[in-house]
Simulated scan of single mutants.
Amino acid sequence: MKFAITSKGDQKSNILMHRIRTYLLDFDLKYDEDQPDIVISIGGDGTLLYAFHRYSSRLDKTAFVGIHTGHLGFYADWVPDEIEKLVIAIAKTPYQVVEYPLLEVIIRYQHAGKESRFLALNESTVKSIEGTLVMDVEIRGQQFERFRGDGLCVSTPSGSTAYNKALGGAIIHPSISAIQVAEMASINNKVFRTIGSPLILPSHHTCMLKPVKRFDFQVTIDHLTHLHKDVKSIQFRVPEEKIRFARFRPFPFWKRVHDSFISD
């Protein structure tokens, strides 16, 4: 088996990275940063997001496992005191693959028929460069509403506990193949009106945003921020690709939600 390791970069994470690499090499596993079968993320959810984007071109071949060296993360199964147990599991135990749905973002431009495609593990947000964001929102090719407000957030089920939750969105179990659209400070009065509630769209539905006046937008893909000019449309849907996690023991989603937001 070939493995790679990504580290948060702090001293604690780097020490663990070197220990795990040494242990796995002793078990005759091969270190391969280009084509790993398994990627070990050491740090927090941000470190795993970085690993996901680094290996997004080989999601069907690479599985991820996380070790959190700070606060409890949603994508990190293991703690530093368990690394010997994890190393033995990786070296000796066939792992279960758990797949989570992702978000596909396709941005099309006004000229030359160009488009950009991105995959997000958590969410994508759209904001105006200046002033109010005004977008026509289409669902399944039909006009749904004209949104006016600070911005829109489209999240995956596993990302529903992140920025989406802060916006009042629902928490969705990752076994449900869907995307969620949440509003950021929408304008609702006698003149302008939006739905005012998060929308949960199944995998066979597409959400399309079309600019009304301005055409330059700030678009985030997880932790990455991009400025896009002369935008014709921004399309969101559930893609065929999924992220694969290597599970060596149960890691119930609702327990993670409880431990992260309710437990003392």
Rank of each mutant, 00 (worst) to 15 (best):
Y75K: 05
E99R: 15
L49V: 04
Y75P: 01
T47P: 03
I42L: 11
K30A: 07
D60F: 09
V98I: 12
G73A: 14
A76E: 05
L49P: 12
Q96A: 15
P80L: 12
A51S: 03
V97T: 08
D77I: 03
K30C: 07
G73I: 01
L48T: 02
I40E: 03
E82F: 07
G70Q: 05
Y95P: 09
I90K: 02
Y50W: 12
E99T: 10
V97M: 12
R58E: 03
L86G: 06
G46N: 00
Y55C: 11
T69F: 00
L59A: 02
K92H: 07
Y95H: 10
I67C: 00
L72V: 14
A89R: 15
Q96Y: 06
G73M: 01
V39I: 13
R58C: 13
G66Q: 04
G43R: 01
D32L: 14
I42H: 06
K92G: 06
K85M: 15
G44T: 02
I40H: 02
G46R: 00
D60N: 14
V39Y: 07
D60P: 15
D45P: 13
I67A: 09
G43W: 00
F52W: 00
D32G: 08
F74G: 07
Y50N: 12
G66S: 09
S57K: 13
I42R: 01
V79C: 11
A51W: 05
D77T: 06
Y75L: 12
A51V: 07
H53S: 11
E99P: 14
I83F: 14
I40W: 06
S56R: 13
P80D: 04
K85F: 14
L48D: 06
V98D: 10
H68A: 04
V98E: 03
D37E: 10
K92C: 14
I40Q: 02
Y75G: 03
L49R: 04
Q35R: 13
A76H: 10
V87R: 12
P94H: 06
R58H: 15
I38T: 09
F52N: 05
H68R: 00
V97L: 10
H68D: 01
S57Y: 04
T47E: 03
L49W: 03
H71W: 04
T62S: 09
K85T: 13
F64L: 04
V97D: 11
E84Q: 10
I83W: 08
K85S: 15
Y95F: 12
D45V: 03
D81I: 11
